[in-house]
Structures are given as C-alpha cells and as structure tokens.
C-alpha cells in the first residue's frame, strides 16, 4: 500500500490528466504532439457498446461487419471523400490505400481513431466535432476495406 501511494504522488500532472481515457483501458493521444486526447466533443452523444468496447481494447468491433461498413461508406462519402477520393488514393488528404502513414500510430486502430476524432493538422479537422464516436468506428471499418486487397 505504502509503495502504491508513493507512486501515485510521483505521477506527473500531465499523466493524471489522461486518467479518464486511461481508466477505460486505452490511452488515447493527440495526433499533433502525443498529449493526452481530450474527449470534449459532442458530450451528449450515446456511447454505444461498440465505443465502450473500443475504449477498453483498442480493437474496432465493427471491423469486417458488412452493415457497419455500409454505414461507414455513406459517412465517408459525405465527410472524407472530397480530400481522400472515392477510392481512398488521396488528393488533398493522403493516400489511405497503402500502409504508409505520416504518423506511425495511424497504422493502428487506436491511431486512426485518434486522428479522426481529435484531428491531425489543418484540414484534417477534429471530426469528433461533426460525428459521434460510433460513426467514427464505422468509417474506420469502411476505410479498412481500401487496404483489404
């Protein structure tokens, strides 16, 4: 007990701030500078079982789910396609069909969620302001299909 208390006291303030996300299992980080990601957008949204599970495991429950992929495609057409193109090869936004990522972490489900929810740089806005986390997971499931073949 004594040791644990000591450790807690030594935790820097920055780490303590990450507690809400870390408590769920995964420590989400801001794309720009790896600071703890703040879940501050659309605070009234429904946290679905899929989102809850993702926060704990970092694995997208919608991966490979045909219905979710179809939903994700609809959102992609509306929110993502103008920059990343219909086939994901990119124009203003980068190519999503290969395994090259400007930020290595974007190669993981957690990293892709971080950049969609919290934004990257400039026009890669924080889309967490424009769609619920459940929809982000569906878009991610759709984006996966670009790299499937």
């Amino acid at each position: 007990m004594h040791r644990l208390l000591l450790l807690a006291a030594l935790l820097p303030a920055a780490l303590a701030a990450a507690a809400p996300a870390a408590a769920d299992g995964i420590e989400f980080k801001a794309t720009l500078n790896d600071k703890p990601l703040q879940f501050k957008y659309r605070t009234n949204q429904e946290i679905t079982p899929a989102v809850e599970s993702f926060h704990k495991t970092g694995e997208n429950p919608y991966a490979g789910d045909a219905a979710a992929i179809a939903d994700g495609q609809k959102i992609y057409k509306k929110m993502c396609q103008a920059c990343h193109l219909k086939d994901g090869t990119g124009r203003i936004g980068p190519n999503l069909t290969d395994e090259e990522w400007a930020r290595a972490r974007t190669g993981t489900e957690v990293g892709r969620f971080e950049i969609i929810y919290g934004g990257g740089a400039g026009a890669m806005q924080a889309f967490g302001r424009r769609m619920d986390q459940d929809d982000i997971l569906k878009v991610m499931a759709f984006i996966d299909t670009f790299r499937a073949d």
Binding site: K78, M79, C80, Q81, A82, C83, A123, Q125, F127, R129, R130
Partner: peptide, 9 residues
C-alpha cells in the same frame, strides 16, 4: 476557421 470544401455545415 473550421470550414472546408467538404462537410461544410
């Protein structure tokens, strides 16, 4: 600003 060609609300 947070506007763009796409998703312009």
């Amino acid at each position: 600003a947070n506007n763009f060609y796409l998703a312009d609300e």
